Computed example of a mutant assay.
Amino acid sequence: MRHYYIYLLKPEIASNYFGKEWLIYQLFVEGETAKKDLRTIAQKQINYISGTIPTLQIKKNLDKALRIRNDFYVLKEHYYIDIKALESKAVLKDHGNMLTISASGSYQAETVFFEVLRQINPAFFAMDFENRNYGWLNPVKQVNYI
């Protein structure tokens, strides 16, 4: 089972930390594992760099992109994809300040959710703490000034 925690970072954070994703990941790790005082500071920093999750826009985009699929359904405000042929399942949950995706089987089902989210905003940052994977859903392109 894979568990992804997805935050929408503010645009200036996304552009300034492109290529330094490990620093963002480390902040979130400290927010989960540090001792009480440091955890409080890390949580304040996480709140500062995080943007508001566009819940309504996500709902509309999921409905628009996935309503024709017979393996997509919504139950109690949670979004499910169950691709039986590929033995791939995923559920997307909105927690207000972050999204979570829990997936099992092949990567196909979670990729469908990632694709919809990356089209909404390029500054979504996903982390799988258990497997130590992290990164942008849609890499922010840097502009080089000469």
Rank of each mutant, 00 (worst) to 15 (best):
L27W: 03
S15Q: 12
E21M: 05
V74P: 02
P11N: 03
N47S: 10
K44Y: 09
A65V: 03
F18E: 11
K64T: 13
D71W: 06
Q26F: 12
I46S: 08
N61G: 03
N70W: 05
D37Q: 10
L38P: 05
I58G: 01
L38V: 12
P54M: 02
R67Y: 08
F28N: 02
N70T: 14
I24Y: 07
D37L: 09
E30H: 14
Q57W: 02
L75S: 10
F28D: 02
L56T: 09
A14I: 04
R67Q: 11
I6D: 00
E12T: 02
D71I: 08
E21Q: 10
Q26W: 12
R39F: 06
Q43M: 14
S50T: 10
D71Q: 07
Y5I: 04
A14P: 03
E32G: 09
T55K: 03
K20F: 13
K10V: 02
K36V: 09
L8K: 03
K44W: 13
K35I: 12
F18K: 09
V29D: 01
G51C: 01
F72R: 04
L27T: 05
A34Y: 09
L23G: 10
K60N: 10
N47Y: 03
G51P: 02
A34N: 12
I41N: 12
L56D: 06
A42R: 08
K35N: 15
Y73A: 05
N47C: 04
I53P: 00
D63M: 13
I24R: 08
Q26G: 15
G19T: 08
E30V: 09
S15R: 11
T33K: 15
F18N: 13
Y7S: 03
E30S: 11
P54W: 01
Q57Y: 03
S50G: 02
I41A: 11
Y48G: 07
V29C: 07
G51T: 00
L9E: 00
Y73D: 06
E30A: 15
K36P: 08
K36I: 09
T33H: 14
G19P: 06
K59P: 02
A42V: 14
A65I: 02
Y7R: 01
L75W: 08
D63K: 15
N16S: 15
